[in-house]
Amino acid sequence: MTLDEVVATIAETGVKPDMEDFDPEKTLELNGIDSLDTYTILLALEEKSGVALEEVDLETINSAKALQAYIAENAA
């Protein structure tokens, strides 16, 4: 899954209506995404990538870029 695909998946969830100012390097929280919407994003990424994200530590892996790297690392 590329970074563009991760960002597109986040956009598809609809949790952030205005994606123009979305910064994939910033944390989801700094992009204005709350903890519950983060659950929705993680589930959408899991379903799209097939990579389990339940062990992701959101303290450290908390940006689109970091999630993309995790998915790439853990993809079969």
């Binding site: 903890s35 519950l36 659950y39 929705t40 993680l42 589930l43 339940e54």
Partner: peptide, 11 residues
Amino acid sequence: NGRDIFNFAAT
């Protein structure tokens, strides 16, 4: 664990 409960319900 709110995330586990959320995932369970949503899926």
